[in-house]
Amino acid sequence: MIEIEHLTKRYGKKTAVDDLTFAVKPGVVTGFLGPNGAGKSTTMRAIVGLDAPTSGLARVNGQHYSQFKSPLTEVGALLEAKSVHAGRSAYKHLLALARTHGIPAKRVHEVIDLVGLHEVAGKRVGGFSLGMGQRLGIAVALLGDPAVLILDEPVNGLDPDGVKWIRLLLKGLASEGRTVFLSSHLMSELAQTAEHLIVIGQGKLLADTTVDDFVNGSGKARVRVVSPDAARLAEHLAGPGITIASPERGVLEVSGTEAAVVGQTAAAHGLVLHELRTDRGSLEDAFMQLTADSVEYRQTVEGAK
């Protein structure tokens, strides 16, 4: 359980996080979404006590992070920027952290195997690829077998295999009753991993909802029908609150109703359907709609759209 209460963080004049309040519950993967510069990394650093809040507070399982007697077994964190000395091997980096808590070397080998760094564990981290560095960061987070995981853009730099692996890993960890909190600026990525969503923009809370509600609530769901009798079907479907578009011959896009209703209408009038499906509207659309006013770093190239 992570609780953020009225968290505000200013760097000089810049307000990175602005009166943020939300909670992350155990047992599910919670996604933390926001455009570049929204304040995700800042919030995560505040949770593990690296950055002190200007006001407000961040608590983990009811306590301030620095009060824990064994921080590594309470919270495992993968932070955005590289957090390893380039001249040290992956093994020694993990070992040095493990020793602070008396965690045995056996556990270090375990997490190295778990993240697939066995072959390169003795090599200097400076030569690691982005993905290898990321795997090491995940190993650090898992080292203490913690109850709470905080991961800042964990899929960054991972290959498709790695992405799939971490998705399963995180879901597995959540199903054991852990709190899993991960950030991303890719909605589509989070939709496949997370069940709950916290969306922020310019440091402010924009949404605190389930992924399903977020997608449905975007109001973009519409029914797509392919039928040789499209024109007649459209006549029967027409009604108040229903809009029908026909992007091409024989295709209808109906919003304001459901696929079941469309199917029943067709059956009632003996019309042939070739295809009937609900378009949820793209997640990225929903996300962009929500954050449209709070995107900080917008590209200004003409015709980018």
Partner: peptide
């Protein structure tokens, strides 16, 4: 997971301490 009960919160195994 959304349809099933939420699992009980994970309790970290004791024994390790920052010293």
């Amino acid at each position: 997971a959304a349809m099933t009960e939420r699992p009980a919160a994970y309790v970290p195994k004791g024994g390790y301490r920052l010293t």
